[in-house]
Simulated assay, not measured.
Amino acid sequence: MLLSISLIFLIGMAMGKIFDKVNLPKLLGMLLTGILIGPYVLNLIYPAILEVSTDLRQIALIIILIRAGLNLDIKDLKKVGRPAILMCFVPACFEITGMLIIAPKLLGICLLDAAIMGTVIAAVSPAVVVPRMLNLMENGYGKNKNIPQMIMAGASVDDVFVIVLFTAFTGLAQSGSISIMQFLKIPTSIGFGLIGGVITGLILTKLFTIFHIRDTGKVIIILSVSFLLVTLEHALNGIVGFSGLLAVMALGATIQQKKYEVSKRLSSKFSKLWFGAEVILFVLVGATVNIKYALNAGLLTILLIFGVMIFRLVGVYISLLSTELNMKERIFSCFAYMPKATVQAAIGGLPLAMGLASGEIILTVAVASIIITAPIGASLVDRSYKKLLTK
Rank of each mutant, 00 (worst) to 15 (best):
I371A: 00
L363R: 00
L229R: 03
K391P: 12
L281Y: 05
S384R: 08
K145A: 14
Q257V: 08
S271A: 10
F242D: 08
R330P: 08
T342I: 15
G286M: 09
S125A: 15
M327A: 00
Q149I: 10
L204I: 13
I85E: 08
V283Y: 00
A122L: 03
I362W: 00
A250V: 11
V308K: 05
T170I: 15
T323N: 09
G29S: 15
L273M: 07
A374H: 05
L266C: 04
A253W: 00
A287M: 09
P187D: 15
I59T: 15
S224V: 08
L42A: 14
P187Y: 13
L223T: 04
L303E: 04
I96Y: 06
L273V: 04
A250N: 05
T373E: 11
I302L: 10
I305S: 06
A346E: 07
L2P: 02
T342F: 12
V262E: 14
P25I: 13
L299F: 10
I222Q: 03
Y40G: 01
Q149V: 13
G38Q: 09
Y260T: 11
L356R: 01
L184N: 04
D55W: 06
I49M: 07
I121C: 10
I291V: 14
Y337Q: 10
T119Y: 08
G176H: 07
V162M: 02
I255K: 05
S156T: 15
Y40C: 02
N237E: 12
T231D: 12
G217L: 15
D113V: 06
G16Q: 07
V230K: 07
L65Q: 14
M338L: 15
F335C: 10
K292H: 08
A297R: 04
I331F: 02
L28S: 09
I310F: 06
V343H: 01
L134K: 05
S263Q: 11
V343I: 09
I96L: 05
L77Y: 05
F242V: 15
L7N: 00
K391N: 13
L299I: 14
G244P: 09
V90F: 14
P339I: 10
V198S: 03
L106K: 07
P91V: 05
G81E: 12
M137C: 08
L295W: 03
L321K: 06
P25F: 14
V160P: 06
S179E: 10
S268R: 02
L202Q: 14
S263A: 13
K264N: 06
I8S: 06
L10P: 01
L352E: 09
L204T: 07
T373K: 00
K206N: 15
S224Y: 12
I305V: 06
R330C: 07
T33C: 05
V308Q: 11
L28Y: 00
G34M: 12
S384K: 01
G217M: 07
P187R: 10
M249G: 15
A346H: 01
I255N: 00
V41D: 05
F270L: 14
S243C: 12
F332H: 03
T188I: 13
L50K: 04
I280E: 01
L65A: 13
V90K: 08
K105M: 13
L7A: 09
L356K: 07
S156G: 04
A48W: 12
L7I: 09
